[in-house]
Amino acid sequence: MAVLTVEDLHVSVADQPILHGVDLELSAGRVHALMGPNGSGKSTLVMALAGHPSYRVTRGRALLDGEDLLALPPHERARKGLLIAFQYPPEVDGVRLREFLRLACGERCIAFCEFQKAYPQALARLRMDGFDDRELNVGFSGGEKKRAELLQVYLLRPKVALLDEPDSGVDVDALRFIADAIRELAAGGTAVLIVTHYPRVLDHVPPAEVFVLDQGRIVRRGGAELAERIGEEGFEVVRG
């Protein structure tokens, strides 16, 4: 059963059409992959679904549990259970990771005592024990930013997690525990979408379904083997 349904989504950025009718469905407890070459519109899809004001939906719809997602402001989308791991999360001066997560968790109705338990576990899972008192993303390396993004999603356990390039800039060891965390997330019932142009992470988290985006349209769908073929032969194989 699809948790998130995207139908005929058209998105423009600064009046420039980027997506020309995207359809996809994400199911609870499954890992999906959205692949596509650079510039194909992958991040645009993620940002539009998150409600970024610069990404204007000109046609189509997106339903979260049957409810119109696009009518909601960004924070309501998050509260309904849609979370993003950003490709390039911004630095927020003076805001400590812990303080921020406790606030974010408050919005998601995780009780304080539950947070006290879940938070250290999540830190340990993503090997971020030393980051508790750090300012949000400030001075984090590329890989640390990715881990911090996943940490948030992992802790908040959304219905739908859109992970935008969770593996770029990440070393081999980190890739392994990032992959473990993603599998756990799905095992807990989250519908996961891994957005990537490179199938490396998918070797560790085999997707149940792969969507290939090219020039603003989904051009292929398949199983894990599609990701493998792209890994071996490049995106040429899916182009008509």
Binding site: G51, P53, H75, R79, F86, P89, V92, D93, A104, L136
Partner: peptide, 28 residues
């Protein structure tokens, strides 16, 4: 920063809450 504001909102904080957090961080 509009990017920081959106980022915090994408975690479920309302605009006012996100703004407060950013301002608090600035004066921290």
């Amino acid at each position: 920063s509009q990017e920081a504001l959106f980022y915090l909102m994408s975690r479920g904080l309302s605009e006012a809450e996100a703004m407060t957090l950013i301002v608090n961080g600035f004066v921290s």
